[in-house]
Design a protein around this nucleic acid. Sequence first.
DNA 1: GCGAACTCGTTGGACTTCCCAACGAAATCC
DNA 2: GGATTTCGTTGGGAAGTCCAACGAGTTCGC
Lengths: 147, 147
Amino acid sequence: MTRFEGPDALGHIQSLPSWLVGRVAARGRSLVADAIAEEGLRLPQHAVLAAVAEYGPVAQADLVRRLGFDAKDVVLLLNHLEDAGLAVRRPDPRDRRKNAVTVTSTGLRTLERCAELAERANAELLAPLSEAEGRQLMELLGRVYEA
Amino acid sequence: MTRFEGPDALGHIQSLPSWLVGRVAARGRSLVADAIAEEGLRLPQHAVLAAVAEYGPVAQADLVRRLGFDAKDVVLLLNHLEDAGLAVRRPDPRDRRKNAVTVTSTGLRTLERCAELAERANAELLAPLSEAEGRQLMELLGRVYEA
DNA sequence: GCGAACTCGTTGGACTTCCCAACGAAATCC
DNA sequence: GGATTTCGTTGGGAAGTCCAACGAGTTCGC
């Protein structure tokens, strides 16, 4: 085991995988957030809008479950998306407790531009790596995450 | 370019490196946070305590610069560490504006236990990978981060 | 059937992290 | 020795995450 824990305490923390992956994640988050800010969206708004687009008319509780977001936050995020004309809430006739949330055509176009922007931001993130190394990084991260 | 952006919008986001690295970072953060919670410390407190231990008697402004934390938060974190008897603030005789922050012997022992706990949490994080793969992941992340 | 238990959307609040502004005290610059 | 800067501290605000509760609506158990 390592001696001299005190003098190297911070260095030890910063040598841990959890610290390094946290730093890279922060950088990636920042890059993507700045990119899609060009479309006036924040990261959680983008995620909710994408989930709405993917799962068609969907209840908010489903979004909560699929995204792992808090129900309250989904309410506020959808308020914003609706105000921006990107998504629509309509009552579900089959279950009057539910809202059937849909993406608008404007929202779909915004989503396509965001996909492009996010992809470019990720290219910038992985710029120091070759294509093969980028795939390898993804493969390793995938195995860690699935565990 | 990809067609059918709408139906696969969320899947596209979740296939990006920024998303995957964010997920892995969240898992690592959670594992380490739970581990050192055993010693009654939260992650930022641990970081500050480690920085204090590493840089000996150090001014708070130095901690702010080295950690990149907000000055206000460092004040509050040090308040907690001092109340817990892990660190001490004393006036710096050479510059009466500064506090000379030091770790107590209790803080040092806590730090050593935290180092062990954090290391075990990271081992759990990288459990799905072999040792060589773990080193490779660190090497790739390091190159991405240094950029 | 019909009351109990649950679900849905919503509201409220607490906490943490991060960012910016200001302040008195103290040091430094010239 | 006056102007500028630094230091610790306090204050406030935006954003993200989480928990508790509620009325309206639906489903389950008997």
